[in-house]
């Protein structure tokens, strides 16, 4: 019974993470393309946008959005959200949660992708141009497939961070696993009452399982890619903007 209560809530985390992951990858790619654009009208604003959101604490962004999104947006979201979505998604606060996660993570992923694109030798782009490929075609067929492939490990490690960060939406009162954990450990009618330490050790274990699976899958993907295409992946050891920092230096 209690396990089911926690697992249901964990499903909310996974769903929020999945939505935010897809959105962050899409917007991250767009921002990265904007940042490497030759036109300064595009590259300067997208660079500034990325730098601002990347350097603010995620929780701070979430809290700000939850306090400042106009009521009408929340209402519109609540009307639009399909009824089959879990109960936690019916609240307008999820909008702020997903938006915050996307704003922050798309900025970080944009930096990762930009580093990947810029790590390619200049010759690649020049050769594509010499072959007569127009800009977008050379991007799509030559630059992106190689540049992004190098960044698979870095991107996945950011997605794992995103998965962990879904717990932060509990602070803006979305009913996910942290909330349910608190409810469970302060439940006085339960017999026996589950101690908080154990509840949260279980929660932690759930995250470890999901995140280790994610990183295993990414490692398999990486090895297969290397066998097929001979891609040299960029090594990552840490989290967040580490790769981006490396790209700044060179």
């Amino acid at each position: 019974m209690n396990a089911k209560f926690l697992l249901n809530a964990f499903l909310v985390n996974i769903e929020i993470a999945a939505i935010a992951m897809v959105l962050s990858l899409i917007f991250g790619l767009l921002l990265a393309l904007g940042r490497v654009s030759k036109s300064r009208v595009v590259s300067i604003p997208s660079g500034a946008w990325v730098d601002v959101w990347r350097n603010l604490p995620l929780l701070f962004i979430l809290l700000y959005l939850s306090l400042s999104l106009p009521e009408t947006w929340n209402a519109r979201y609540e009307n639009l959200v399909p009824a089959f979505m879990p109960e936690a998604f019916q609240s307008g606060r999820v909008l702020a949660g997903v938006m915050g996660l996307t704003l922050y993570n798309s900025a970080v992923i944009a930096e990762v992708m930009r580093a990947g694109i810029q790590s390619l030798e200049r010759g690649q782009g020049e050769a594509a141009a010499a072959l007569g490929l127009p800009y977008w075609k050379s991007m799509r067929l030559v630059i992106l497939p190689q540049g992004l492939r190098r960044m698979v490990p870095a991107t996945v490690s950011q997605l794992i961070t995103l998965m962990k960060d879904t717990t932060l939406v509990s602070i803006i009162a979305i009913q996910e696993i942290m909330r349910h954990g608190r409810i469970l450990s302060s439940c006085f009618t339960c017999d026996p009452q589950p101690p908080l330490l154990q509840v949260f050790l279980v929660v932690g274990a759930m995250f470890i399982v999901v995140n280790l699976t994610l990183s295993r899958v990414s490692r398999r993907l990486e090895i297969r890619q290397r066998e097929r295409t001979g891609t040299e992946v960029q090594a990552v050891t840490g989290l967040e903007d580490q790769v981006a920092a490396k790209a700044d230096v060179t």
Binding site: I160, K164, D165, T166, T167, L168, S170, M178, G181, R182, L196, L197, F200, L201, V203, G204, F207, I208, N211, L212, L239
Partner: peptide, 13 residues
Amino acid sequence: IFRNIPLLVLLFI
């Protein structure tokens, strides 16, 4: 362990 557990869980514990 510490890289895969959310910080929030750690703080609560």
